[in-house]
Amino acid sequence: MEEAATAGQLAGPPLVVLENVSKRYRRGQEVVAALTAVSLQLQRGEMVAVTGPSGCGKSTTLNLIAGVDRPDAGRVRVADIDVSEADEASLVRLRRHLVGVVFQAFHLVPHLTVEENVALPLALAGRHDAARVDALLQRVGLAHRRRHYPGELSGGEQQRTAIARALAHRPPVVLADEPTGNLDSRTGAEILRLLDEMRREAGTALLLVTHDDTVATMADRVIRLRDGQVEAVL
C-alpha cells in the first residue's frame, strides 16, 4: 500500500516504524482484517493523529506499537526494539523506557494517591525521583491534590494525572487512545492543549488516536485509516 507522506518530518531516524504491517483477528467464525499492509513512521518530537471511523484499525495500530499485540505480517520497530519479535524482557523495557500511554478511561490505580500514580512508571523501573514527580504535578496543576485518590478527582483532573504519569519516565513516544473521549468538550480541549505543550517541552513524539477531526487539526500530520488501510495522509 501507499507509504505515508512525511510532511513536517523532524531530523534523525524515525522513532516508530511500521512496515507493511497486517493484522487479522478471529471473531467467532469470522476472520477480520484489522490492518492490511499499513506503513507509517513517527519522527522524534512530532505529533501524529490517526483518525478514521470505528473499526478502521486505529486502536490496533496503537496496540502493535505498545507491544500488546504482534503483527501477522510486516515489522514494527520502536527505537531499537523490533516489537514483532521481542521477548518478554524487551517488551517490559519498551513499556518502561520507550513508551508512555494515555487511555481514554484514565485507568489510574484506585488505591494509590495522585502522587503515587504519577511515580508509578519510575517505581516499576526501580527508580525514585521525587523532584521529577513534583515538577510534573506542578506542571499539570495538581500539586495541591497530590495526596488525593483518583476517586476524589474530576475527569479532567484524572486525565491530567494520567498525562503526568505517561511522561514521568521521559519516554520518547507517547501513545494516546482517545484521551478526550470521556471528557466534555471544554475539558477535552484543555487536556489536549496540556498534552501538546508538555510533549513539546519534553521533545516527545505523540501518536494520538481520535475520531474527532477537530482534534486532528492540532497534529503535525494526520493519517486517516479506513477498513484497515491508510486512506490518506494529511
Binding site: 517490559v92 485507568h107 516499576l124
Partner: peptide, 12 residues
C-alpha cells in the same frame, strides 16, 4: 484490570 494496567506501564 489493575494487573493489565500495571503490565501496560511496564510491570515485569
Amino acid at each position: 484490570s489493575l494487573i493489565a494496567l500495571l503490565r501496560s506501564l511496564g510491570a515485569s
